[in-house]
């Protein structure tokens, strides 16, 4: 034993050395290392979970979008159909209205024309009547001979130039 150099106090000192080393390394190496390891694995787990969640969410969102798009397409089609129908109706109505209006216009124009014609005719008549009366007066006033008769008519015609033209 002496030849090998075994020495109880040295042995105990080395055991203490190891103990100190163990304690210090535990504090400055193993504990931080483990903490870092745990932290990292926690983060990885978390991020993986998050990824999974996001993936699910994305799939859900995609489904939702597809559904919405389909719905919107349907709705749009419906609206278009409706619009076309309404448009047709409106067109028809407009056409009918236009026709009616045109007819009304034509009718009104016709009545107007007729009325005007009648007015003109009645005026003419009145004028004629006046003229006749005038002529009659003249006739009655004088003793008429053929010569005078002629004169009177010419005079009347001369006095009413409107009649001559019309």
């Amino acid at each position: 034993m002496e030849g090998l150099g075994i020495n109880p106090s040295m042995l105990i000192a080395q055991v203490i050395n190891f103990g100190i080393l163990f304690g210090l390394l535990y504090l400055v190496a193993y504990k931080p290392f483990m903490r870092m390891l745990d932290e990292r694995s926690r983060r990885v787990k978390e991020s993986m979970e998050q990824t999974e969640y996001i993936k699910q969410q994305a799939a859900k969102a995609e489904q939702e979008t597809e559904k919405r798009i389909a719905e919107a397409g349907k709705k749009g089609q419906k609206i278009i159909d409706q619009a076309v129908k309404i448009g047709k109706e409106v067109g028809q109505k407009a056409q009918e209205e236009a026709k009616q209006k045109a007819e009304a216009l034509i009718t009104r124009a016709r009545t107007e024309i007729r009325r005007e014609r009648d007015e003109v005719i009645s005026e003419l008549r009145k004028e004629f009547a006046g003229l006749t009366i005038l002529a009659a007066e003249k006739v009655i006033d004088r003793s008429l001979d053929k010569e005078t008769h002629r004169q009177i008519i010419d005079q009347v015609l001369k006095e009413s130039p409107g009649l001559k033209k019309g």
């Binding site: 040295m10 000192a13 080395q14 050395n17 100190i20 080393l21 210090l24 390394l25 400055v28 190496a29 931080p32 290392f33």
Partner: peptide, 20 residues
């Protein structure tokens, strides 16, 4: 013993410097 102490100081010091 001195060498053992040097080793201890080295290992602990290095670990401390890194994990600080």
């Amino acid at each position: 013993m001195i060498a053992a102490w040097i080793t201890m100081i080295f290992v602990v010091g290095l670990s401390y410097a890194i994990t600080r």
